[in-house]
Design a protein around this nucleic acid. Sequence first.
DNA 1: AGTATGACATAGC
DNA 2: AGCTATGCCATAC
Length: 109
Amino acid sequence: MSPLYERIYAIVRKIPSGKVATYGQIARILGNPRLSRIVGCAMHVAPNDVPCHRVLNREGRLCDAFEPLGAQTHRLLLSMEGVECGENNRVDLSIYGWSGEIKAQRDCQ
DNA sequence: AGTATGACATAGC
DNA sequence: AGCTATGCCATAC
């Protein structure tokens, strides 16, 4: 497992329940905003202890390829965590967006 | 082993 | 302000 992946998983695990983060944010924490794709790829192979359902794209929406569980389960998971998702599985990032990235950055440093 | 593509985002035009 | 082009690393073929 690449150290980069470990870092990604570590960050994703730090996302508190009820909050959501974007690939770009995570990539920024990693040091390169353009690693967003890698983050996605990492999520694809992410172990079950990683809350990949809290990671959304820039639109505040998870792609239709939420693999093992499906988009439906994704919405359910977020609902259980107190995140209101719209009809299109849309999440308001201005409300549920994870503001702890700075803290994570500090922690990472 | 090399090429192509991908759970995305940013920058330039 | 919206669209096109480019970048990044890993996985798949």
